[in-house]
Amino acid sequence: MISIRNLSKNYEEVQALKNISLEVKPKEIFGLIGPDGAGKTTLMRILTSLLLFDEGEVQVMGKSPISDYQFIRNHIGYMPGKFSLYEDLTVEENLSFFANIFGTTIEKSYDLIKDIYQQIEPFKKRKAGALSGGMKQKLALCAALIHYPKILFLDEPTTGVDPVSRKEFWHIIQQLHHHDITIFVSTPYMDEANLCDRIALIDKGEILNVDLPENISKAFDKTLYAIQCHEGNYQLIKKLREYTHFDSVFPFGEEVHYTDARATDIESDIKLYLEESGLTSIQIRKTASTIEDVFISLMNKN
């Protein structure tokens, strides 16, 4: 559906994308996971024909976004990271407008959008600017789907949305599968990676890894320890960094995730060291790696 080979894009002094290669298969949910400034939006805009690029080869539905941009624009749905509907128009007026510019009507597309639209329909006379964050995203999604696109591009659709709405939103995205739509979604949230069929990890304009989410989380090649102590994560991380066999450490929820330079079982060694450093109520256990662990270790290598 999408094929990218050796793509590079430079802004005046910054290299936003460095020699990227990707393949997106038809009907999959492809997640582009990475922190702010990694190059997610730039890649998204190149694929939607909104930006030109410097080197490489890009094909969307077999067409070039440079020469065949009209074809691509006819067959994609795009939801930018920033809410981009008209805040002074009502929900209904916004949808009618977007239906109109794609040469269709709300009625014709009702089948595809009804599950989402029914949730915002009670507010259809309300101005879009007065909607909550979650509602705005649903409206924007409806607008992006109004013409039955073949590929749906979602740029950070859940950024700034509350946890409940985020969950609902991902549920909707997964439902869209039944309509033969390929979905290309970017997010800075690692926990959303598991909801995609395949993911690419991106940082500083480089793709670090592309695989199934479960394969990526398994790809962690070291023993991972989850450690907690009474004095809190800040003190704990500080002490661990001073440890002779330190390899990596970062906060993970209420615990910190730590890897050691030695391959042997060193649980009791670490505990002893931390107690000598003056920390109390230390809890330490081995834990399974997540995508976030993999991502951070890849970022550090990078």
Partner: peptide, 13 residues
Amino acid sequence: ETGTMEVLLASPM
């Protein structure tokens, strides 16, 4: 400025 031009440009119009 509001970003709606981005959506309009990504449309077939």
